[in-house]
């Protein structure tokens, strides 16, 4: 039982560590040039989940297909979704104080 759980626990701890790196990185002023580096821990988390929790290495073609579909839909969300903020006209206004 422990032998089965141990690798999963290690992967979970690794995920938490990567989450910490991602969260800490958000407070660093990396600028446009290095801001993309924060995608690295996120990508590593995706890889860990895919390889160890979803066991995609040993999975059927159907499971891999669905995993790929999820990635495809993520690309659609980020791709089509970023089209708006990247081409939006901003009209700065004074900051509002909420009651």
């Amino acid at each position: 039982m422990m032998q089965t759980l141990r690798p999963l626990l290690l992967v979970w701890l690794a995920l938490l560590a990567l989450l910490g790196v991602e969260l800490g990185g958000a407070f660093l002023r990396l600028g446009h040039l290095f801001g993309g580096l924060l995608l690295l821990p996120a990508g590593a988390m995706v890889a860990l989940v895919g390889l160890f929790f979803m066991r995609l290495r040993h999975a059927s073609g159907l499971s891999r297909g669905f995993a790929l579909a999820a990635m495809f839909w993520l690309v659609v969300l980020l791709g089509l979704g970023s089209m708006d903020p990247m081409t939006r006209t901003l009209h700065p206004v004074a900051m509002t104080t909420y009651p």
């Binding site: 839909w73 659609v76 089509l80 089209m83 708006d84 903020p85 990247m86 081409t87 939006r88 006209t89």
Partner: peptide, 20 residues
């Protein structure tokens, strides 16, 4: 999955995004 932006045409999204 490709059409959600049509709910936001008057929400202040970019005109280019709205056309797409």
């Amino acid at each position: 999955f490709f059409v959600w932006g049509h709910h936001m045409f008057v929400a202040g999204t970019s005109i280019y995004s709205a056309i797409v």
